[in-house]
Simulated scan of single mutants.
Amino acid sequence: MSDKPIDGRMTDDARGGVTVFLIGMRINKFRALRSWWPVSRAMPRMLKELSRDPESGLLGYRLLSGGPRVLYTVQYWESKEKLFAYATAPDKEHHPAWAAFNRRMREGHGDVGFWHETYVVPAGAHESIYVNMPAFGLGKAAGVVPVGRRGERARERLGAA
């Protein structure tokens, strides 16, 4: 998708439910490069692998920085089942990366921190609006449509009109 703003009011075109997965790391000791550098390199490899496989269930993602110490990713998935399937697949990038990360965590004595949050959002329990924006967030992951197709107000888009 283009990074060019789309004129007017748009909303996401997600059909059904969506799973939102936030995952990140915090560099606690910058000098401990051996602890955090490999961790920071693993996520782009996994996202590349997932992006090449339309059946993976990953709808889209955004890599973000929460300041000089925090790197994280917002991911949009078709379902929690597809997220769990990837996380436990022995033949995918996640499995060796997770094993290496756990080893570094034990050896690093707190050099790097880790967190994740998972939100399972049922159909009809989310809404979005993008005004004069390029496709962004869930809209970039699922596509966008004019607001009128899903309701002019947030209340309508959430099915609470």
Rank of each mutant, 00 (worst) to 15 (best):
residue 132 N to E: 09
residue 53 D to Q: 11
residue 30 F to H: 10
residue 111 D to I: 06
residue 36 W to A: 01
residue 61 Y to M: 09
residue 32 A to C: 11
residue 155 R to P: 01
residue 83 L to K: 04
residue 77 W to P: 04
residue 91 D to V: 00
residue 70 V to L: 15
residue 118 T to G: 10
residue 150 R to P: 04
residue 123 A to N: 03
residue 68 P to F: 13
residue 5 P to N: 09
residue 157 R to Y: 02
residue 49 E to A: 10
residue 92 K to M: 11
residue 65 S to V: 11
residue 87 A to C: 14
residue 147 V to K: 00
residue 138 L to R: 00
residue 161 A to I: 09
residue 94 H to T: 01
residue 20 V to C: 06
residue 56 S to N: 05
residue 67 G to L: 00
residue 153 R to T: 14
residue 10 M to F: 02
residue 85 A to F: 07
residue 89 A to F: 00
residue 45 R to A: 14
residue 161 A to S: 15
residue 83 L to A: 09
residue 150 R to K: 13
residue 132 N to S: 12
residue 110 G to V: 12
residue 161 A to D: 15
residue 36 W to G: 02
residue 36 W to E: 00
residue 23 I to N: 09
residue 25 M to V: 14
residue 87 A to Q: 12
residue 26 R to C: 07
residue 8 G to C: 06
residue 88 T to G: 05
residue 22 L to P: 08
residue 100 A to P: 07
residue 57 G to N: 01
residue 29 K to E: 13
residue 83 L to H: 04
residue 13 D to N: 13
residue 82 K to T: 10
residue 147 V to Y: 01
residue 67 G to F: 04
residue 55 E to C: 07
residue 119 Y to D: 05
residue 159 G to I: 07
residue 111 D to M: 11
residue 8 G to K: 00
residue 81 E to P: 13
residue 154 A to F: 09
residue 25 M to F: 15
residue 70 V to W: 08
residue 110 G to I: 08
residue 155 R to V: 06
residue 84 F to T: 10
residue 29 K to W: 06
residue 12 D to R: 03
residue 145 V to F: 00
residue 121 V to M: 06
residue 118 T to I: 15
residue 154 A to P: 05
residue 155 R to F: 12
residue 48 K to A: 15
residue 3 D to C: 03
residue 12 D to Q: 03
residue 57 G to W: 01
residue 105 M to W: 12
residue 113 G to T: 03
residue 38 P to C: 04
